[in-house]
Each structure stands twice: as structure tokens, then as C-alpha cells.
Write a protein that binds this DNA or RNA. Structure first.
Length: 317
DNA sequence: AAGACGAAAGTGGTTGA
DNA sequence: TCAACAACTTTCGTCTT
């Protein structure tokens, strides 16, 4: 909870200057843009969770080009109801040369603008889409979900609207379920409980709507792998990459022996972390881990006893 | 005193008749 | 709609460090 705070950068100015790992001094850092993280190759420490790709957004095809393309205007985004592509007529009464427009034409321009607005946000569908996208943005921000999840959720929501799946359901329940689905799709899952806590909906409601969306849109998401929780939990417990790797191996073995399916993934992740933390000499109590993973100590206990027994792990407590 | 342990009863959700 | 069911939780007394 305390040690890795120094490495996180709140303001992005200083982010680029990080060239070596504060933990082991290695200069081999890699950027995981999908997760928005800067990670040390040697020890696996997450140096910055909010790393942003500041490179050019296009490949360049020769050396000359490299310098000048760089960032070229806002990217097309699912987060804008028109994907950021529509035209807007300026509000000033000037033409493109900056000369003022004769007053006899002003009325015409005004009408143009009016119609432009109407075309842009035309139907009721469009208008509700705008508010839904705002809602996605709001919830994702409070939960600290990265941009790609928002984009993905927006895509799922759009699809749901197009297929008329909203009928009989509240917009916000579909919004939240889209976010939940997106978080799983992007391999950065949050539990239903986490979404329930961040919103006014109950877990069951979100789950129900999610299953509905999943079926109708054929999202085909596989059950959440416990491994996907390791990164986040280990971070919050200030555990090193070595421990995370150990826990990952344990879960990998468990997966091969078919001990995973049917069990709650967060409980399994918690148990694997507990075993790894004890064996790797960075012990955390069952309670600490249970708290982070949002399960009880008893569950951590039961899962880890299972794993130890079935995988023949020796462990001295 | 804190942590780990495990038994037993309770909870909320799924499934299948 | 109801009962069986599995996973997980709550609670609590006991043992270990």
C-alpha cells in the first residue's frame, strides 16, 4: 500500500524521464500500451500505471517522414457519437479568409448552421447515445479504467442500440454491462462487485444484463482467468514481479490439472498470491490478501489448501 | 496479541425438473 | 416455481507463533 507510490507519476511531464527501474536498476523497460503500463523487463515491477504512448500515431515509411507526421489531430474515437468526424460550422461571422460576411448573407449562414446542428444530432437515438457515452466516460473515470476499455464499451453499447436491445432495460444498466464486458474483453477484468460498488446497480442486475448482451451480441467471452487479476492485486499489495511470476506459475499448473473451472477467479488469484508470498519471502497475511481480492480469509484458506494439496507444494507456515 | 485454522450454519445465485 | 446444489460468507472457538 505504501512503497510503490513514489514511482507513480501523477503528472505526465516526468513520465518520459524514467529510464531505469527504481527497483533493480535495469534499463530494460517495456511499455505495455494496452494496459497503459511501464514495466521493468528484469523484475516485472510496474513503474508507471498511467503510461501514455507519446510517440507518433502512424508508422513512418522513411527517415524523412519520421519527424513531421507525429501527432496529427484527434484520432477517430468511438467515444464521440459521430466518431469525431462530422463538420462544424464556426460561430463567428467570418468567411474562411477572415473577412466579415455581408449582413444580407448572415441569415443564410444562420440557417445553414441550424440545419448542420440538426443533422449532426438528429434522432432521439443519437441524443441518447451522447448521454450514454458521457455515462461510460464518467464511470470509467471514477473506476480508473483505461481509455481502450471505454472505447470498447462504447462499441458494444452502439451495437446494442443498433440491435434494439435496450428496450425494456435502463440505459445505464446497459452502459455498465458494456463496461463490464469491455473490461473482460480487454483482459483487464474487474469483478461484478467492483462495478456494483461504483454504481447504484446491484451485482445481479449487472450480471443479468451482461449475460443478455453477451448472448445477443455473441461476445463469446471466455470465463475470466485468475491470472488476469495477479498484476493488479500484486501491485496493490506492493509485491515484486518475482512473486507475481510465481503465482502465475502456480495458476498455470492448476489450470493444467483442471483445478480452476467452477471456482471464483479472484479467490484463486488470492490463494496463489498467498502461497507465492510465503514461499518467496514477501509474506502477506491472509487477511491483507483477502481484503484486496475482495473475498474472505476463509476462501483464501480453502483455495490455497486445495492448491497445495493437489499440486504437491510444500509450504511451511 | 496477531495470525492461522476449520467446523457449522447461512446466503445468493444457478440449474433442471 | 420449486428444490437441489456448489461456491462463498459469517461466525466462532481453538491452536500456533
Amino acid at each position: 500500500m505504501k512503497t510503490d507510490v513514489e514511482y507513480k507519476n501523477k503528472d505526465h511531464q516526468s513520465v518520459e524521464q524514467v529510464t531505469e527501474c527504481p527497483e533493480c536498476g535495469s534499463r530494460r523497460l517495456s511499455q505495455d500500451y494496452d494496459r497503459g503500463e511501464l514495466i521493468c523487463d528484469e523484475c516485472g515491477l510496474v513503474i508507471d500505471e498511467t503510461y501514455i504512448d507519446q510517440g507518433p500515431d502512424w508508422r513512418s515509411f522513411d527517415m524523412k517522414e519520421e519527424g513531421d507526421k507525429s501527432r496529427a489531430g484527434p484520432p477517430m474515437s468511438e467515444m464521440m457519437h459521430d466518431k469525431g468526424l462530422s463538420t462544424n460550422i464556426s460561430v463567428s461571422d467570418r468567411d474562411s479568409y477572415g473577412k466579415s460576411i455581408p449582413s444580407k448573407n448572415r441569415a443564410q449562414i444562420y440557417r445553414l448552421r441550424k440545419w448542420q446542428r440538426r443533422i449532426r444530432v438528429s434522432s432521439a437515438k443519437e441524443r441518447s447515445l451522447v448521454s450514454a457515452l458521457k455515462e461510460i466516460n464518467r464511470i470509467a473515470s471514477t473506476m480508473g479504467l483505461p481509455r481502450n476499455i471505454m472505447e470498447s464499451a462504447a462499441r458494444i453499447y452502439r451495437e446494442a442500440v443498433e440491435r434494439n436491445l435496450i428496450r425494456g432495460r435502463s440505459i445505464s444498466s446497459v452502459v455498465i454491462s458494456s463496461l463490464y464486458a469491455a473490461s473482460r474483453k480487454m483482459n483487464l477484468p474487474r469483478t461484478l462487485d467492483e462495478f456494483a460498488d461504483a454504481t447504484e446497480f446491484k451485482r445481479t442486475e449487472i450480471g443479468r444484463t451482461y449475460r443478455f448482451l453477451s448472448r445477443e451480441l455473441e461476445l463469446q467471452l471466455k470465463p475470466t482467468k485468475p491470472q488476469l487479476y495477479l498484476q493488479r492485486y500484486c501491485n496493490e499489495l506492493s509485491l515484486s514481479g518475482t512473486i507475481r511470476k510465481m503465482a502465475e506459475n502456480i495458476l498455470e499448473d492448476a489450470e493444467e490439472k483442471d483445478l480452476i473451472s467452477g471456482k471464483g477467479p479472484s479467490g484463486l488469484a488470492a490463494a496463489a498470491i498467498y502461497i507465492a508470498s510465503v514461499k518467496g519471502g514477501e509474506r502477506r497475511t491472509q487477511r491483507e490478501i483477502a481484503e484486496i481480492a475482495d473475498v474472505t480469509e476463509v476462501t483464501v484458506r480453502n483455495r490455497y489448501k486445495d492448491l497445495v494439496k493437489q499440486l504437491d507444494i510444500e509450504i511451511d507456515v
